[in-house]
Structure formats: C-alpha cells, structure tokens
C-alpha cells in the first residue's frame, strides 16, 4: 500500500521559510495570500496490504524519524483507503 505522510511545523513554531515564500508571492502580485506555512510530504511504498496495519506502520515511522514531534506534527493518509 502507499502511505502519504505530511509533516508540518506546529502552530506557534516560527516558519521563516513560509514567511519568505509568502513575501515572494506578494511580490509576484498575489496580494490575496495570507499566512504561508511550508512543510514536507513523504510517499511510502509499504508491504502491508491491510490499511490499518499500513497506517500504524507509517505513524510509527513518522514518530521515530520523519517528524520531529518537538516542533512538527504529522498526518498519515493511506492511498485508496477511506479516512477513518
């Protein structure tokens, strides 16, 4: 199965990259953009065929390595499975 892990800085953690991107968008004339937050997306090919097992595995990977939970939160989506 395929899992997609999205990692974002937690609210309240300064995101200077998001801020710089927001300023660049404003310079390009996109004046209607408010706050911009930058994050990371990981696509994982998993051996698990059960969506629950796949989700558990991806969450464990996110907690141990993909996200630093001191500063980041994460969201796991299993491709093709309905979100519980």
């Amino acid at each position: 199965m395929k899992a997609v892990v999205t990692v974002m800085l937690k609210p309240g953690v300064l995101d200077p990259q998001g801020k710089a991107i927001g300023q660049a968008l404003a310079h390009l004339g996109f004046g209607d953009v408010g706050e911009v937050r930058a994050g990371k997306v990981f696509e994982l090919e998993l051996a698990q065929t059960d969506p629950v097992a796949a989700r558990n595995a991806a969450e464990s990977m996110a907690r141990k390595l993909l996200a630093n939970t001191v500063i980041e939160s994460f969201k796991v989506e299993i491709a093709g499975a309905a979100t519980p």
Partner: peptide, 17 residues
C-alpha cells in the same frame, strides 16, 4: 544531541533564513 533527545528542544532554521 537534540534530535537524539539527549538534550531538549530543537534547532530551527535561522530566523533571518
């Protein structure tokens, strides 16, 4: 050391980028 959690906190991108 902070990524290993031997010390607390995290080191973010410099505020000035």
């Amino acid at each position: 050391l902070v990524e290993s959690q031997l010390l607390p906190g995290a080191l973010l991108r410099n505020a000035s980028l």
